[in-house]
């Protein structure tokens, strides 16, 4: 029972930390993209494409961590 509770706690804390990191990263990415688009609106399409790719890759790393949280929570 005690071990289960600790696992749930770890999963919840872990999910929160993961979201903090990912949100910070993607937020920085979006800020940089908007700045770049503002400076050079003619390359907006290319900048958006590379933003989506980077955001997806950051998200991928996030999901690895979230998978661990899910495993902990469903133990």
């Amino acid at each position: 029972m005690e071990a289960n509770a600790l696992a749930y706690l770890g999963a919840g804390l872990g999910a929160g930390l993961v979201v903090l990191g990912a949100a910070f990263g993607i937020g920085k990415l979006a800020a940089a993209t908007m700045e770049a688009t503002g400076r050079q609106p003619e390359v907006a399409g290319q900048v958006r494409t590379s933003m989506i790719i980077s955001a997806a890759l950051i998200e991928g790393a996030t999901f690895f961590a979230l998978a661990i949280c899910i495993i902990l929570a469903t133990k």
Binding site: E59, G60, F63, F64, L66, A67
Partner: peptide, 9 residues
């Protein structure tokens, strides 16, 4: 694996 987890999640 990341493709799989991303879509699923």
């Amino acid at each position: 694996f990341a493709l799989c987890m991303r879509l699923f999640a």
